[in-house]
C-alpha cells in the first residue's frame, strides 16, 4: 500500500517542489546575477586547475608530459606515511599549530575588547595604528632581531643580547633560548604574537563597529559596571565573527608556513621544528618532486576539510550560526 501511494504521489510532490524552486529561482534572479562574477572566478581559477590534485597519484616532475607520467596509485602516500619522520612531523606540526590556536587566537580578541574600552579617541587611534605596524615588518627582520635579543655571550665574560641579560638578572641563571629543542615552539609563538596580534584586531574592530551605543546606555542605567558591559554587550556582538574565524582557523590546522621556521632552524632544534610545510618546501619546491609534495598537500587538505566540517557542525549544534 505504502509503496503504491508513494509511486502515485511522489511525482506530483516532486512537481510541486520543482515548481516552488523554479519560482524561487525566478524571484531571486538578480541575486544569481550578483553571484555570477564570483562563480566565474571560482570555476576558472579554482576548479579548472583542480586536475592538479591528480598529480598526487603520479610520478610527476614539472616538464614531463602530464599524461606520460606513470600512475603510481597511492605509493606517494604510503611512502609519506611510512617515512620514519612522519610521526615526528605530525607531532611538531600539531604542537606549533595547536599552541597558536590556544595562545595566539584569543589575543586579538582580548586586545580589541581593551581597545574598545579606551575612551580617549586620539590615543586609541594612535595605539591601534602602532600595534598593527609589525604585520608589515618582514619575517627576515623579525628573526634577525630575535637573534640579537636572545643571543648568549660568545665567550665567558662577554655580554649577551638585551633580553638574555634581563632574564639573567631576573632569574640569576643564564638561559640559552635557542639551543634547547622545545624552546623553538615558544620562540615561534612569541614571534607570531608579536607580528600578528595587532593586525588580527582589524576584523574584530570592524565587527564592534556594529554595536548599538544605546545598548550601553541602557546597561548603564541598569547599573552594569564596565566588566559586565564588556561581557554582556561587547563580547556577544563579536561572537559570530569569533566563531567564523575559529572555524576558518581549523581549516589551517596543519599550516605552519615555512619561511619563519626555516629562518629559526639550527642543528639543535631541527628535530622539533621540522613540520609538513618545511618538509614540502624541501622536497617539493627545492627538489621539484611534484608528485610527492602534492600528495603531502592533499593529505593536509583532507585533514583540513574534516576539521572545518567538524568545527562547523559543533558550532551549529551549540546554537551558533556556523559558517554555512
Amino acid at each position: 500500500m505504502a509503496k503504491v501511494e508513494k509511486i502515485t504521489l511522489s511525482p506530483e510532490q516532486k512537481l510541486i517542489e520543482r515548481k516552488r524552486k523554479l519560482t524561487r529561482i525566478k524571484k531571486d534572479k538578480w541575486i544569481y546575477l550578483l553571484l555570477l562574477p564570483g562563480a566565474l572566478f571560482f570555476i576558472l581559477f579554482k576548479f579548472v586547475p583542480m586536475w592538479g590534485v591528480l598529480i598526487a597519484f603520479k610520478d610527476y616532475y614539472a616538464g614531463i608530459n602530464f599524461w606520460m607520467a606513470p600512475w603510481v596509485g597511492f605509493s606517494n602516500f604510503t611512502d609519506f606515511f611510512t617515512d620514519s619522520d612522519f610521526l615526528r612531523l605530525f607531532k611538531n606540526t600539531l604542537i606549533i599549530s595547536g599552541m597558536n590556536l590556544v595562545f595566539f587566537f584569543p589575543l586579538p580578541i582580548i586586545l580589541s575588547l581593551f581597545l574598545n574600552e579606551m575612551k580617549i579617541q586620539w590615543y586609541k587611534k594612535a595605539v591601534q595604528t602602532l600595534v598593527y605596524v609589525p604585520h608589515f615588518v618582514s619575517m627576515v627582520v623579525i628573526c634577525s632581531i630575535t637573534f640579537m635579543l636572545v643571543k648568549t655571550p660568545s665567550i665567558d665574560g662577554f655580554t649577551g643580547g638585551a633580553l638574555y641579560e634581563i632574564m639573567k638578572r631576573l632569574t640569576g641563571q643564564s638561559i640559552n633560548v635557542l639551543d634547547t629543542p622545545s624552546n623553538i615552539y615558544w620562540v615561534l609563538l612569541i614571534q607570531n604574537i608579536w607580528k600578528e596580534t595587532g593586525w588580527g584586531t582589524v576584523i574584530f574592530l570592524a565587527a564592534l563597529a556594529g554595536v548599538d551605543m544605546e545598548q550601553y546606555e541602557a546597561a548603564i542605567v541598569d547599573g552594569a559596571n564596565r566588566w559586565q558591559q564588556m561581557f554582556y554587550i561587547t563580547f556577544p556582538a563579536i561572537t559570530s565573527t569569533i566563531i567564523t574565524m575559529f572555524i576558518l582557523r581549523m581549516g589551517a590546522v596543519l599550516d605552519t608556513g615555512f619561511e619563519q621556521i626555516i629562518l629559526m632552524q639550527n642543528d639543535l632544534n631541527k628535530t622539533t621544528s621540522e613540520t609538513f610545510d618545511t618538509y614540502v618546501y624541501n622536497v617539493g619546491r627545492v627538489d621539484g618532486n611534484y608528485g610527492y609534495s602534492t600528495a603531502v598537500g592533499l593529505f593536509k587538505s583532507i585533514i583540513s576539510i574534516i576539521c572545518i566540517q567538524s568545527a562547523n557542525f559543533l558550532a551549529k549544534r551549540h546554537g551558533q550560526a556556523g559558517l554555512f
Partner: peptide, 24 residues
C-alpha cells in the same frame, strides 16, 4: 537561496584543496 549550500561547499572546497602552481 536555491543552491546556496552547494555553492558554499564548493567555495570551502577550494579553500582547502588547490590544483597547485602549474595547473593555475
Amino acid at each position: 537561496l536555491v543552491g546556496r549550500n552547494i555553492m558554499l561547499n564548493c567555495v570551502l572546497f577550494t579553500m582547502v584543496f588547490s590544483g597547485g602552481m602549474i595547473p593555475t
